Amino acid sequence: MRVKKQKRHRRAVRFYTVCHGFRQPFKVLCDGTFVHHLIANRIAPADTALSNILGAPVKLFTTRCVLEELKRLGKSYTESLEAAQQLMVARCDHEKLKTADACISEIIGEKNQEHFFVATQDTDLRKKLQELPAVPLVFGLRNALFLEPPSKFQRQFAKSSEEQRLHMTDLEKQLLRKRTNNPVEDQEPEDPSQENAPSGDENENLQPQPRKHPVRKSLGVKDRPQFKRKKAKNPNPLSIKKKKNRQTSQTASKEDKGAGDDTARSRTRKRKRSRKSKKLPETSS
């Protein structure tokens, strides 16, 4: 159960941070009923308990009207009054004192520009604040604290605001129409000297004059971007073989052939034949 509770609280906090821009440290506006609930159930310190729920550091606030209401309730609320006096006091602009729920609803307003988390045990006040688009609510149940999930109205408001961001506003449409009706002309101004230029065969003899760009010259910009052409580099002389002359190569090849023949002849052994005198057969007398 504790893991599911933490997941729900993370989703709710992420909803308010993403859709309505709540930032850390979160500001929690507490009324007298919530402070009394913390003291009655011995939930202390209150800032650490709330920071565990919201997953971030918190700052606790109350109002001048809430403190006056706790004073009026008598001695049974003296301990809760002392605890509430230790909290920071949020500024309320009304001069006359009001009830706690009226004071808190006036501080929150319609848009909750100060991004307050409201901590209260008053069910009527919670139902009233659920109808506003960006008011997260915290309440206590025995010795545990809970963050209410966003209401249906708050989720629908977030979806509609996202759709409005995707589409163009009326001012953006008007600006776009003006730009399309009056496009910017990037044409270069014509030179007055070209109007009186001669026509026919005289133009052939005349040399073409370069265009003048007074605006570019005044700005110090060149007419056209000049790109440096890369010249062909010579190869590395160490990696090139030296050229051999044909005559020297031919003579060397002939000498090699002659030497090869001599060596071949010298290597071939001649067979020496011994010529012995043949003995004639003796004739009988």
Rank of each mutant, 00 (worst) to 15 (best):
P133L: 02
L171H: 05
F146L: 10
M1Q: 04
S274D: 14
F22N: 10
Y16M: 02
I108D: 09
R271D: 12
N205M: 09
S51H: 10
L171A: 11
S80L: 01
T248D: 11
N234W: 04
R165N: 07
A44P: 01
Y77K: 01
R126G: 14
N234I: 08
S239W: 09
L97E: 14
K173P: 00
L29N: 06
E172W: 00
G55N: 01
P281Q: 00
M168V: 09
R23V: 14
A84H: 04
R216K: 04
R155N: 09
E106Q: 15
A264F: 01
A102P: 00
E79D: 13
S285D: 11
V58T: 05
Q121F: 03
K243W: 09
H37V: 00
H20F: 13
V138S: 03
T283V: 10
P281Y: 01
Y16V: 03
E69C: 01
G55Q: 00
Y16G: 06
K231I: 06
Q209W: 07
A40K: 15
T123W: 06
L54N: 08
S218F: 13
E148Y: 05
C30V: 05
L206R: 06
R91M: 01
L219Q: 13
H94P: 05
G109W: 07
V138F: 02
F22W: 08
A56D: 11
Q113E: 15
K27G: 05
L54C: 05
Q154K: 07
Q121V: 01
R165H: 05
T123D: 14
F116I: 00
Q250L: 11
P189S: 08
K71E: 13
K257Q: 14
I107S: 07
C92I: 02
K243C: 07
D256C: 13
E202R: 10
H94Q: 13
K254Q: 09
L81D: 03
M1F: 00
K279V: 12
P45S: 07
N205V: 02
E110V: 06
N196M: 11
P189C: 05
Q209P: 04
A102D: 08
S193L: 15
L38R: 02
D93R: 15
D124K: 12
N203K: 08
N41V: 08
L166V: 12
C19L: 03
D256P: 02
A46V: 03
A232M: 04
C92D: 10
E69I: 00
K59M: 11
Q86W: 10
S284T: 07
R126C: 15
V58H: 08
F116H: 03
G32K: 06
R11Q: 08
G55F: 02
N196L: 13
K231H: 01
Y16E: 06
L137G: 12
V89G: 02
T251G: 02
